[in-house]
Structure formats: C-alpha cells, structure tokens
Design a protein around this nucleic acid. Structure first.
Lengths: 148, 148
DNA sequence: ATGCCTGCAAAATATTTGCATGTAA
DNA sequence: TTACATGCAAATATTTTGCAGGCAT
C-alpha cells in the first residue's frame, strides 16, 4: 500500500525533510537515496530515465552506481513517489507527478512532457474483455519538431 | 515510402503470393522472410514480440536466428506490413494490423489486444508545444484479470 | 567476376539479481 | 553480535551492428 504521494509535497524541501519522507515510506535514508530524492523532488515535476538521473548524480559528484539508480527508482515507484510512463520501448521513464494525467512524447528527442490536466477526455471506451477490468488509460500524443 | 499494406490483403494466401508481396515491397523473398511472413500474415491479425515469433519459427522447424527475426520485423515495419505498439517498456510488440486503432494491454500476462475501431474518441487534445506537430495519438487501456 | 543484399555472431544497450558489506539495535 | 537492509559487480535480457558469405547480373 503506497503512502500517498501528497505527503511528499506537504513538506518543505531540504535534506532533513527528504529524509523524513523516505522514512515515512519505509526506506532508510541512505546517502544515495537522499541524493537521488533531492534531485528528483526539488523544484518542479520532471521525467527521467535511469541513465539521465545517474548522469546528474555524477555531475554533482555523488558517487552511485547505475544499478543503484535503477533499484532506487523502482523502490520510489513502489513507494508511490514516482510513476512510470510507457512511451518508448527502448527506455523506461519515471514521472515525479504521480497524479492521473497524459503525456506528449517528442520523437527524435526522446523527451516526455506532461499534458496539463486540462480537458482531455476519452469517449466510447469499449468494454474490457470478459473477466477483465480496466486499471488505467494511458494517452500518449506523439509529436515531432516541424522542420524550419 | 511504404507500399500500402492493403496490397498484402488483396492477395490470396499461399507461399507464391507471400513471395510476390515481399518482392512488391522491395524485399527479396528469402527462405527466412517467407517463413516469417507466412507465420505473420496467415489467418487473422496478431501481435507478436521478436521472442515469440522466433519460438514459433522453431516450433515449425524453420532454422532462423533471433537477430534475423528482429531485423526482419524491422524491415516489415519499414515496408508498412507491420506497425509497432508501445505498451510495455520491457519488450517491443508488432501488430499485423497497420490501420489506426488502439490497444488493450493485459497486465500480468503481457498480452496485447486490439480495441475494435469502434467509437473511441478523444476530446480536448491540447495544442502541441510550440514548433511541434502531432504525429500520432496512442491510447493504451491497461486491464487486469479480475480475481475469481 | 562484381557488387549489392542477407543472416547471424558478436557487440551494444538496458535492466535485474546475488551477495559482500554496512548499519541499527 | 545479530539480523536485516543496502549498493554494486556480475549476470541477464533485449536489440543492433558488422561482416563473411550468398545471389543476381
């Protein structure tokens, strides 16, 4: 049962609070986790791949292996601090905005953007196959840069 | 420029026709390609991963490496005989139905099902970011088996 | 022959696992 | 100390590339 992600945003930022949040979701606030959490949850929402986050950790001189970045992202996801976004079969994207919303995917740049909550609505959804229930509806609007 | 996929369905099935279609899209009808095309385009539409298709080729004793299955699927896609479906970041799925339609994805079974053309419609699509144009809208309805 | 095309071994890329080590009680 | 959690090297999984050999001309 993931602890509601709102806890996270209810708290002021800063190292001490990051640690408190991690403890709240049942994860020991280790050096690596705190560093990654600060990178992810400071400032506005963002979309990252494991590779990108690892690079950003290197940039600020936080020693951490790529494997640990993957494991940490998966733990944060299970804890409800992140959700994943399936837009590209060559890499996994994680979104710090866990609320129900959809995405743009910029082809050629492998970049994910949130579609604002706005008025997107889907009509005429079919019945799920017999014996199944709908768990989630994902809309991905693929976009490309128009040539200049 | 992909040759319209309709050519494929305009022809009766059978080895000779499979070969004719492959030639039409500019691919030499080699033993491996003919075998995979027959597996894919005989009978009703289907969704496959490279791994699955490779297994089915083994089952009917067609010697072919997994690398060739990947390459062939990509060639068929470029030729317009297949489209890909992004539903799961751990494997690439190919769909023999290249027309514009959406998908169910059965969680826990990694299975893709077509959503019939039906009346699914999306309202309130946002403007794409400045300098971008929409190339495609994908809807994935994730479903799970209801526990008995 | 000549040159393009094919199929696959090997390489590259992406992700997960197993275990030595660290840490709290 | 003990027991459990952590972080990462190594293993696995997935996909692409490079090139030896095949085929049409």
């Amino acid at each position: 049962m993931p602890i509601p992600a709102e806890y996270r945003r209810a708290l002021p930022s800063g190292r001490a609070c990051t640690m408190a949040v991690l403890r709240m979701v049942g994860l020991r606030p280790t050096r690596q986790r705190v560093a990654l959490a600060e990178l992810l949850f400071t400032g506005s929402h963002q979309h990252v791949t494991a590779e990108e986050l690892h690079q950003r950790a290197q940039d600020i001189k936080v020693g951490i292996s790529l494997a640990t970045v993957y494991n940490t992202l998966n733990q944060f996801r299970q804890a409800g601090l992140l959700r994943d976004v399936t837009v590209d079969s060559t890499a996994s994207y994680f979104d710090t905005d866990t609320s129900d919303h959809h995405h743009f995917f910029v082809e050629g740049e492998q970049r994910v953007l949130d579609i604002p909550r706005s008025g997107i609505s889907i009509d005429g959804l079919p019945q799920p196959p017999l014996g199944m229930k709908i768990t989630h509806v994902d809309v991905v609007v693929r976009v490309a840069r128009v040539q200049a």
